[in-house]
C-alpha cells in the first residue's frame, strides 16, 4: 500500500549514507547515544511486553504489565515514509482518546498523522527524535518509540478489534501489496 506510493521519492541511491545501511538491526546509529538513565530504557531493553499489537495505519503498541504501552510506527511505515526530517511529539500529560492524533511525522514534504489506538495519558515522549528524526528510519521499533502511554484500561487492548497481532499484521501487509 503506502509502500508503492512513497517509493519513488523515498530513497534515492545517492542519499543513502553508510549509517543507514544498518537500518534493519536494532543497533543505534552512531549519532545517537543510548540513554540508560531514560525512564523507558528498561521497557526497551529489559522488560518483555505482554502484548505486541499493530494497527492498519502501521502503528505498533507494546503493552507492559504495569498497564503502560509504548507507541511507535512499524518498520514497514518507516520505509514507506522515506527520509524522516521532523517528528512532532505529544506533550507529557496530554490526555489521549482512542483514535486521536498523537503526533505526526514529516518526510519528503509530507505530513503523516500518527494515531493512538488506545485511550490514556502520555507519560513519556522520545525527545531524542526532536534532535535526530532519522532514528525513525534506523530503528523505528525500539529506539524510535514515539510516546509512552499510561493506559486507562488494559482490557481495551485485549478486546480491541482494530488491533492486529503480529501474524495478522503480516498478513495484512501481504494483502496490501
Amino acid at each position: 500500500m503506502i509502500k508503492t506510493l512513497f517509493r519513488p521519492a523515498s530513497i534515492s541511491i545517492k542519499s543513502i549514507k553508510p549509517s543507514q545501511l544498518r537500518s534493519f538491526t536494532t543497533t543505534n546509529p552512531l549519532s545517537f547515544v543510548l540513554n540508560k538513565d531514560s525512564p523507558q530504557y528498561k521497557y526497551l531493553h529489559e522488560w518483555k511486553p505482554i502484548e505486541h499489537k499493530f494497527t492498519e495505519e502501521h502503528e505498533y503498541l507494546k503493552v507492559y504489565d504495569d498497564s503502560t504501552a509504548l507507541l511507535g510506527i512499524t518498520q514497514y511505515a518507516s520505509q514507506a515514509l522515506g527520509d524522516v526530517t521532523f517528528v512532532e511529539l505529544p506533550e507529557i500529560g496530554d490526555r489521549i482518546e482512542k483514535g486521536d492524533t498523537i503526533g505526526s511525522v514529516e518526510s519528503v514534504k509530507s505530513a503523516s498523522e500518527i494515531y493512538s489506538p488506545v485511550s490514556g495519558e502520555v507519560i513519556g515522549i522520545n525527545d531524542a527524535l526532536e534532535g535526530t528524526p532519522s532514528i525513525l528510519n534506523h530503528d523505528p521499533e525500539v529506539e524510535g518509540w514515539i510516546a509512552h502511554i499510561k493506559l486507562d484500561d488494559i482490557a481495551e487492548v485485549k478486546d480491541s478489534e482494530d488491533l492486529l497481532d503480529k501474524e495478522n499484521y503480516e498478513d495484512f501487509l501481504k494483502k496490501d501489496d
Binding site: I2, P8, K109, S110, A111, S112
Partner: peptide, 20 residues
C-alpha cells in the same frame, strides 16, 4: 517531483498530507 520548465525554472511547489 516538482514541475519545472525545460530550462529548469520551477513553476509549481507541492506538499502532501496523509491521514487515516
Amino acid at each position: 517531483g516538482d514541475i519545472v520548465t525545460t530550462d529548469g525554472f520551477k513553476v509549481s511547489g507541492s506538499a502532501f498530507k496523509l491521514s487515516k
